Computed example of a mutant assay.
Amino acid sequence: MNTQLAHLCRLAQQPSRRIVGLMSGTSLDGLDVALCRFTGTGPATQVVVEQFATVPYSADTRQRIQQVFARQQVNLQHLTLLHAWLGNLHGELVLQCLQRWQVPPEEVDLIASHGQTVFHAPRHQHQLLKWPNATLQLGDADHLAVRTGILTISDFRQKHVAAGGEGAPLAVYGDYLLFSQPGEDRLLLNLGGIANFTYLPGSLDATAVFSTDTGPANTLLDAIVRQHYPGRSYDEHGALAAQGTVQQELLSELLKHPFFQASLPKTTGPELFSLAYLQAAQERSHTQHLAPIHVLATLVALSAEGIARAVRQQLGPEPSLPIYISGGGLHNPVLLAAIQARLPHCQLCSTAELGFLPDAKEAVLFATLANETLAGEARIIGAGSQAVPAVSLGKISLPG
């Protein structure tokens, strides 16, 4: 047998595995790197986060990604080169983190790399009925594996699409395995560029688990800040939005988009919730000349309303359960207050109360997917047309 395949088999049979989970979201702020120790698989999974860091992207890196990010037309040579370049960059950032943590690369069993999403195209969004759901993440895992010398599992979203899903949200797999609690119904809400939630029943019934995107969380807020406030990439603590007033005419136009009327589950991305979407709504509502602080206040209301509508649509008009929040939006008290006002009977909490750093959660979840791909079993989560396909996610890249 090929020695690397033999090594792969040994890893799958080990009682525990050390996995580096990588995540870079649509905010383009940097690479989340989580060093995790996994014991067991499936519902018996136990994970300890040994180290975590967010390595900020340089302005040059963000600029390179933005040339292809959520764009209908791109330079094909730049796209091709960026795929390899990001793989090498992520590998270098992993090695830098391991050196800082004094962990030799040979003591890491594998890397779980989400990659950098640059375009998400579910059929309901592209409206081309003869074409399938599709999604694209950059950061070639072969380059990452060779650069680090560590077995790498990547491209988790493609199998989900191939099996009939939309490629998102995938957090449901890890949420169910890591955060389910007997006797307590829970909602796990991620406030990244796009907001998504996973409902976890206290019965632990996998067929009752549910996950969906709800609309924008931070993507439009960050875009407005970058456009109007040079040197800033986001509205820290919601301070700018707090100075503004929600403009109801604009909010009403924003909420008329068919996405908010579509049935659950659904997925979306910054391809839809872009500055062009905002500009069109401002033109229809004659609010083109609003001060940026009022636009930001209105976009906070949009994010909160999208979340609340989806939660009520799934759980009834007056849901009452704890909501454990992760992602950058957790640090925006204006957004949290807007969500709380619309879901008054829910208790907003941080995933820190579950023993997980909120900023590390997504990187840990993709490490969980890699652990399942290597040593677990495919399982159906959800029921009927809302079921998550029973597939092993991820492609395996050998380091040599």
Rank of each mutant, 00 (worst) to 15 (best):
T267P: 05
A6P: 01
Y57Q: 03
Q67K: 15
S303F: 04
T39H: 14
Y176L: 01
P132W: 10
H160G: 06
H124S: 15
N2R: 11
F356C: 13
Q314W: 10
M1K: 00
D213K: 11
G183Y: 09
H90N: 14
P122V: 07
L110D: 01
P182G: 05
G394K: 13
L240N: 08
A281Q: 11
H237C: 05
L138V: 08
L369G: 07
E318L: 12
L296F: 02
Y57M: 00
I19E: 12
L200T: 07
F119T: 00
D222E: 11
H237R: 14
I339H: 09
P43H: 07
Y324W: 05
P122S: 01
L335Y: 01
A363G: 13
L275S: 01
L348S: 09
E271Q: 12
D175M: 02
V209K: 00
Q96M: 08
L221N: 03
R64C: 06
L299P: 11
A34R: 10
L35K: 05
S113H: 08
L250R: 11
Q243N: 09
L81K: 05
I325D: 06
A310V: 00
Q51F: 08
H331N: 13
A53T: 13
L170I: 00
E106H: 14
L187H: 10
L240H: 03
T298D: 12
E362P: 02
P317N: 11
H289G: 06
G139C: 04
L221V: 10
A304S: 01
P317W: 06
E236W: 11
E283A: 09
D175S: 00
G269I: 06
Q67F: 00
N371W: 08
G269R: 02
A223Y: 05
S27C: 05
A59T: 12
V49Y: 02
G167L: 01
P169A: 09
Q386A: 15
P265Y: 09
